[in-house]
Design a protein around this nucleic acid. Structure first.
Lengths: 120, 120
DNA sequence: CGGAATCCTCCCAGATACTG
DNA sequence: CAGTATCTGGGAGGATTCCG
């Protein structure tokens, strides 16, 4: 370890780095839940609204828009009545699943432990 | 999959759930970087400030406080002149490393790909 | 050196209402 | 059904200053 400036060698989320916003996309609370919710297949807007408990329409639409722009999710719009829109993970989005799921699993698994400690 | 309400079965980050704030701790942008920076051993406050590029004193102190309260990090204060304080991962904090590192690795690995897509 | 306190700004995110 | 538009408050987070 010659460099002491950054333990990581470089900071992938630095404000000087183009990818800074990437953590706000992949690391975002809602994005993680949306990603995980889409793990088993495509979902409609309304289904996502129920799957991601507590999210507002605005946040859902906003995050979905970002994720589509980032190439993590595809948006398929069917010209029907009533309107129908389905969101599905891209290959890129699916490639992020293990990392995302790992974070969720850890959180679920150690939640109670953290919560106990936090009481003190 | 009988339940359609939540793809995860339940939402670990729901606002109705005690662990909602947990993602704001473990999923937080700065917390992730601090955690990863401490992977190789204890660091002083100033060293962390350099390791986590772009973080302000305020944010560093705030996040470290939260992480200590959550039992992810220990704080060791030495009565010397000049003062010295070292932060180190607890076993719990270390247990989160794989998940955290997985997220960082994915981000670093697919960053350029996302950035390209985002241009369009 | 390692913070805490203060101030200030701006963006996030919720609520609500409206549209195709 | 699947969104946008608008308004608004609260909090994240930066800069600066001061203290033990």
């Amino acid at each position: 370890m010659a460099e002491e400036e950054s333990v990581l060698g470089w900071n992938p989320f630095s404000r000087n780095c183009a990818s800074r916003g990437l953590l706000n996309s992949i690391g975002d609370k809602w994005a993680i839940l949306i990603l995980a919710s889409l793990a088993d297949g495509a979902l409609r807007f309304g289904e996502l609204e129920e799957a991601v408990d507590g999210i507002s329409q605005k946040m859902l639409a906003q995050r979905l828009g970002d994720m589509v722009a980032d190439g993590l999710v595809t948006r398929a719009q069917f010209q029907e009545v009533p309107p129908r829109v389905e969101y599905e993970l891209t290959d890129l989005g699916r490639s992020a699943l293990p990392a995302v799921q790992g974070l969720i699993d850890w959180t679920v698994g150690h939640m109670s432990q953290v919560y106990e400690t936090r009481q003190k």
